[in-house]
Write a protein that binds this DNA or RNA. Sequence first.
DNA 1: ATCACTTTCGGAAACGCTTCCGAAAAGAGT
DNA 2: ACTCTTTTCGGAAGCGTTTCCGAAAGTGAT
Lengths: 350, 350
Amino acid sequence: MDTVGTASIHFSAVAGRSSLADIARLAGVSLATASRAMSNSYGVAPATRARVLRIAEELDYVVSPEASRLARGAVGRVALVVPHVDRWFFGAVIGGLEAELSDAGLDVLLYHVGDADDRRDFFHRLPARRKVDAVVVVAFEVADAERERLERMGVLVVAAGGQDEVYPGVRIDDREAGRRAVDHLLFLGHRRIGMISAVDPDQPVAARPHGRDQAYHDALRDAGLPIDDELVVTIEWSGVAAADAMAALLSLRSPPTAVYCHSDELALGAIRTIRRAGLRVPEDLSVIGVDDHPLAELTDLTTVAQPARDQGVRAAHLLLARLRGQGSPQHVVLPTRLVIRRSTAPPREV
Amino acid sequence: MDTVGTASIHFSAVAGRSSLADIARLAGVSLATASRAMSNSYGVAPATRARVLRIAEELDYVVSPEASRLARGAVGRVALVVPHVDRWFFGAVIGGLEAELSDAGLDVLLYHVGDADDRRDFFHRLPARRKVDAVVVVAFEVADAERERLERMGVLVVAAGGQDEVYPGVRIDDREAGRRAVDHLLFLGHRRIGMISAVDPDQPVAARPHGRDQAYHDALRDAGLPIDDELVVTIEWSGVAAADAMAALLSLRSPPTAVYCHSDELALGAIRTIRRAGLRVPEDLSVIGVDDHPLAELTDLTTVAQPARDQGVRAAHLLLARLRGQGSPQHVVLPTRLVIRRSTAPPREV
DNA sequence: ATCACTTTCGGAAACGCTTCCGAAAAGAGT
DNA sequence: ACTCTTTTCGGAAGCGTTTCCGAAAGTGAT
């Protein structure tokens, strides 16, 4: 092999143009052995393996994933199904997932399902994409029909974020998170607390009462406070909607002295209208969010933090464990934590 | 539900368990014909096609992408290479890309390359993932070695966002964007303008002067103003770093009356320290960002908006066109736009 | 030397599809 | 009725791997 490598590199202008058969031939071994050498499997002499590997390297050879998967029976891909990609929380979860999964050598397919049409489309066409080893639904719930569809495909399903109860997965306790927020307000002495509650219009499954809503009711009840329906306004998940909601709250005969928002984004919207109304946060009105969005730190927003990226990585671990047939916990719920900054304070008139 | 389809459904518990051969047999046609029917190709009688399709539907059959691609020679996947997934801009670009690409029937592979290690890893292993039809690099520049690697693989490369000049792609004119920002400050009457400039430490290619930096110099020069090095502070891309930078700016003997930040996130960080110092925005100090992050609207931040998602969709279009062998523009640069909100105002002492 | 293993390796059969090529069938034109 | 086309379809050869199975060669003990 007189300097084979270099010569052959010129020969194959495009990497990956050669096949295992070429490698085998050049290495003077059979196809079977070449395959074994490439895949690190047992039963090939170290010297032989080295030779094959070297030739492969020189030729810039890489196994064809199609052929490999075809022969082996499909492994190595997982689909991420996400309702949003451009919101911090989802991005962070995806980030965590991607890191672990691709570390494990899996390919990560991304599917964005926004509205109902997307959903139908995804669940209809997923089989056509079959041979994903698993799908992870990030922060959304799958409807029964969809669930059945997944079932039929026989793929592993894992949930990351969100409040899905039926698939194994990792999440936070929304009720606990909400509770921390409202309790903080209560602790400061607030007695008239508003809530800006958000629902995702594209996630029709939200029939089940949201944990962050329940938390509000629980907390007020436990504090022996009446709950005034005027004080809670439900909107779509958007900061500007929250700004409007806040306006409504401010126009009440007896406005709240504090508002609990389902997310930081909402809280920021609320703060905008408060400030525009000439009031000050937290002196005149306290605002608390949930999430600990990176910008919460920059805007001095008090919030209850949830580990976003971590939900992704933990979900990946769980997925990996199950893929390997190892046992793994059914649900892992990650802790939340109150982060006090400068958007909450005791009410004025105490 | 005890009708037609159900019988066969019970038969194949797991969708996708049957092969084209089964379908062909059941439909009483050859494998070849079945294949043609499934792939909508020309040359099969409508009745035959319908029959095949019906059987396939009943059996929940879907073609195996591996086998299909193997036989046909790999098509249908594109890799997205992103330096961040959890920042708004990147998420938005990815969103746009995903939407168009998956509409076009392509699978979208996601690769996060954070630090230098990731990069090396990605470019080293990409060939192992070969048979992506294209890779789109979102908002980052590829080094020469990497470029050569891509070259060798013979895949189409497209850039989305970022300032890459060598690959076809879509972006904004950073210099123009920055110029709009600084000019706005100038227009308001500011003469002492600070800049908080950010670099991404993980993107070592940033040797080339950044457009948003140049804009600052250009604008000041054109306005006949001296440029005072004290007034520009360069940091890593992070809001809290920007907060610190702002602190430095405030402690100057002669602090700026306005600061231009390379991004909204930075601007928010700057605003935090201004407020904590007991100063008011925009009364005491004007702040302007770049991006039009969704939260900029909520925080009343003046900024110059760039279309984020759109860069993704346009890049996808460009990619698609090239994949189809159609000509397409080499570079498309999208417009930016000044969005005046409430973080900028004329300087106090004018 | 012989025997019983253990390693190392090659042949060949899948894996599930696409597609070239040619044959049979069905229309068209005269 | 008889060619000449056009349509529809089947046979079969790949596509590039993996892996089962058995053969050959090497190892150590007897």
